[in-house]
Design a protein around this nucleic acid. Structure first.
Lengths: 119, 119
DNA sequence: TTAATATTTTCTACAATGTAGAAAATATCG
DNA sequence: CGATATTTTCTACATTGTAGAAAATATTAA
């Protein structure tokens, strides 16, 4: 057959992007606050870690426990890093979305007769 | 609290876009072939209709049975139309994705030190 | 040292979305 | 009518999204 592409879920997509952006500072709680700041998205810790773990089991990210010498209270951070495969699937996902969006108008007052006459 | 946004699932997103593009000719089987042509995505009929129905129950599309006077064999087509709400959620989804993608590099040879050093 | 507090992750459950294929419906044509 | 063509409906299950309590583990105060 054809098309053996892997698809990123909507939230997986977002989380993976947050990890890329955070770079060296990519750990759970930080991803959470980042999503809140950037797109005002509220996510529970459970949702986040479940997704993080699934991304890891798919090989899109790897994780490593942080240094125990941090000067703060609390449990050790777990840092995540997006893998080459993770970047690949991000690229593919973006590409497909771009193709699908091609020519689709978004203005609230879409002109009649256009292929996008929903409004 | 905040952020009462509705999120489109990955496939819902794609299907909604296909419907917009197909315009007057947006019915199940056609969406299927369109997805295959545009992004080489194989979808079973079951997957497609399940999603179409969910989109309708959320108010993102409406549907209407086609004319019985079609000059061909087979069952009547069911045409779908994206609603104003459907367009709204598409816009919102795209906006969030654009924010998340901002500044994220995708070239396979990403330069070291950049926030995107996965490759 | 022990308790209080702070920070982050793990665990457990369930809801929503994605996926598939057989079956049903319904039209034309020989 | 029976064969064939086209499209949708139905039934089931896998994967992803969601949440919050509990656990782990560090610092600081008593």
């Amino acid at each position: 057959m054809a098309s053996k592409e892997k698809h990123l879920g909507e939230f997986e997509h977002i989380v993976l992007l947050a990890l890329v952006r955070l770079g060296e500072d990519a750990y759970g709680m930080n991803v959470r606050t980042t999503l809140k700041k950037l797109i005002d998205r509220d996510t529970s810790i459970g949702s986040l870690y479940a997704t993080l773990e699934r991304l890891e089991s798919k090989g899109y990210v790897t994780s490593l426990l942080g240094e125990a010498t941090a000067e703060r209270g609390g449990r050790a951070k777990r840092f995540f890093k997006v893998t080459a495969d993770g970047m690949r699937v991000l690229r593919a996902t973006k590409g497909r979305l771009e193709v699908m969006w091609e020519g689709v108008l978004l203005t609230p007052q879409t002109q009649a007769g256009s292929p996008c006459a929903a409004l």
